[in-house]
Design a protein around this nucleic acid. Structure first.
Lengths: 253, 253
DNA sequence: CGGAACGTTGAGGCTAGTCAAGGGACGTGG
DNA sequence: CCACGTCCCTTGACTAGCCTCAACGTTCCG
């Protein structure tokens, strides 16, 4: 997708029409945002973290020639900030892809002070997991065909959504447009479309009207070499902290 | 580059022929490694960090089909571990590209305990900087032509080497083979070669016998859209907030 | 001198991009 | 209710960028 390269790297035509939700219980302080609303602007200093409660968002950068590179999809439960360290300058933007509920949480000022160790540890773990995802994406973009690249992304989304209960073996609701997928995997939307057609024709999965419907997830995973290990590794290790059998770690993203 | 996919994801034919250096002064405990020696093996648990004192190394993954994806070059001053958090399982390998001096430093066991806050902060800053680099690489691979991709990598190396005094306006010593560059930018070595020829022919820079010789760095930067901001941003901000000199741990990637 | 590792070059093919046109779904306003 | 615009999907024809295969050159070293 080509966009006008505005100085701030922001989508100029978007306006954050935030409104507060019913301030009862868990939703207190949660913001409701329409699709295509900016949550984080590149260049800002970090003072809040934003937790996705509902809806999808993406982390992206606009390049000098107007091309957009998406570096992460943010699903319910995810934190929009890749390293929530107070005061750091943010080198990416985040915008919603669907109507969303986002909860901002303010951060203690001096990093570390007054924060329990396990909070620091979770920031570190989060940052580490982000790195793993980025390395996996790097390998995906760099070394796979368009066909496998798209399949792999679908597998990642499926796996991550499964973890939060938003996907099962039959598939998942996926609000992404083919253009957004293209900007994530480094293709054109036209080519993404062709690849999707191929997946349909080969009866692997369909991507239509906002839903990915599988005819066998394992077949798809095998074909594109998807191994969910890189998503769990840390989590599993973190929970058990020590003394564990950590099995399938060596394989590539 | 295609490699046999060995279970451990390691380069089977490499043998770590470590030997201790003269244990006097700053070099005490420093290891001397030949080229193509493994420093970190994918799947290991992190208990030491390894600081590059001399020589070049790279962080990489071997994919199931044997392809190698390099996700970072490690230059003098860099820490091989992208997030030096004790006990985490490492999802990449690191090997030397040239004869190198590497200093291993053991880490306190429980993350955080007994470590001063600025050390934690330094780990976080380092991790954050790694993310920035990864995002920059992602955009580079995904959205630029082969020609610009290679130019951009050369600019990054030049900038980072300049920071540690190993490059000037005329160029820098670069021990990378065209195949290694190919594995970093997602091309074949044949095509890297063609692009290099083009750079020579256009009198932008030459890449010959281990040296990159510029005929005007700015011209190259402009053409590929290289902006060194992503390397500094945090550093500048970081120094201001805490006013400490902790140079080699968190700083340059 | 021979081998190994790396660089160089050419021919030909495939993958993905570009350009272009049209279709379906949906909302809005007359 | 229909006309229209917008957004997204779909498809075809053509092009170009990069890959593959293959051969040969260069440098270095034992």
């Amino acid at each position: 997708m080509h966009l006008q390269a505005t100085p701030a790297g922001d989508l100029g035509h978007l306006h954050a029409r935030k409104k507060h939700c019913l301030p009862n219980g868990a939703l207190a302080g949660t913001l409701f945002l329409e699709a295509n609303n900016t949550i984080i602007k590149e260049g800002a200093a970090l003072d809040y973290i934003h937790v996705m409660h509902m809806g999808w968002a993406c982390r992206y950068n606009i390049m000098k020639d107007g091309k957009r590179q998406i570096s992460a999809f943010l699903l319910p439960g995810d934190v929009c900030e890749s390293t929530p360290m107070y005061g750091t300058l943010i080198d990416y933007s985040v915008c919603t892809l669907t109507p969303s509920l986002v909860k901002p949480i303010s951060i203690e000022k001096p990093v570390g002070f007054g924060q329990p160790f396990d909070q620091l540890q979770s920031i570190l773990s989060g940052s580490l997991l982000e790195q793993r995802l980025l390395r996996a994406w790097l390998a995906n973009l760099s070394r796979r065909s368009a066909y496998n690249r798209v399949a792999w992304l679908i597998c990642e989304l499926h796996e991550r959504l499964s973890i939060v209960g938003l996907a099962d073996e039959t598939g998942f609701d996926c609000p992404l447009t083919q253009e957004v997928i293209a900007d994530a995997v480094g293709l054109t939307s036209v080519h993404v479309n062709r690849v999707m057609k191929q997946f349909r024709d080969e009866n692997l999965f369909s991507f239509r009207s906002g839903r990915v419907a599988f005819a066998g997830v394992q077949k798809v995973r095998k074909l594109c070499g998807f191994d969910p290990a890189y998503l769990h590794l840390d989590l599993a290790q973190h929970i058990k902290t020590t003394s564990t059998s950590r099995v399938q770690l060596s394989d590539c993203p």
